[in-house]
Simulated assay, not measured.
Amino acid sequence: MTDEFMKGFALFALGGLGWLTFGGWYRTPSYYDIVQLVNPAEGVDSAYGEIGLVAGNAFFWLMILGALTFWVLIPASRELRAALDDDADAAN
């Protein structure tokens, strides 16, 4: 169980750091604004800027879906599989 936790935590940390980095570069017009990292991107007029926006979104979803997969979906599927195996053994 700790193995899944650490995998989920590693993906959460990696995705979070990547999202913060690209969000700070492309979505933060001023560090004195209250709303940061969720602003619409402004002044992105190059292919590298577009790649940076896509990478920032990819890191965000890696953070969310990676943690969700290893913290919720995989343990839930193992518990469901164990419960179904117990029911099958009890029926025989």
Rank of each mutant, 00 (worst) to 15 (best):
M6Y: 10
G8F: 02
G8R: 02
F9E: 05
A10L: 07
L11Q: 11
A13N: 06
L14C: 10
L17E: 07
G18T: 05
W19G: 01
W19K: 09
T21P: 00
G23F: 08
P29R: 14
S30R: 10
Y31S: 06
D33R: 14
V35G: 04
V35A: 08
V35D: 05
V35K: 15
Q36I: 15
L37C: 01
N39K: 15
P40Y: 02
A41V: 03
A41R: 07
E42Y: 06
G43M: 03
S46G: 05
Y48Q: 14
Y48C: 03
E50A: 07
I51F: 11
A55C: 08
A58P: 15
A58N: 08
F59Y: 10
F60T: 03
W61G: 05
W61R: 04
L62M: 14
L62D: 03
L62S: 04
M63V: 01
M63H: 09
L65G: 03
A67S: 14
A67G: 13
L68R: 00
T69Q: 10
F70D: 02
V72M: 15
L73T: 07
L73F: 13
I74C: 02
A76F: 04
A76P: 00
A76G: 02
S77Q: 12
R78D: 11
R81H: 12
L84T: 07
L84N: 03
D85Y: 09
D85N: 14
D87Y: 10
D87C: 02
A88Q: 10
D89V: 13
A91H: 04
A91C: 02
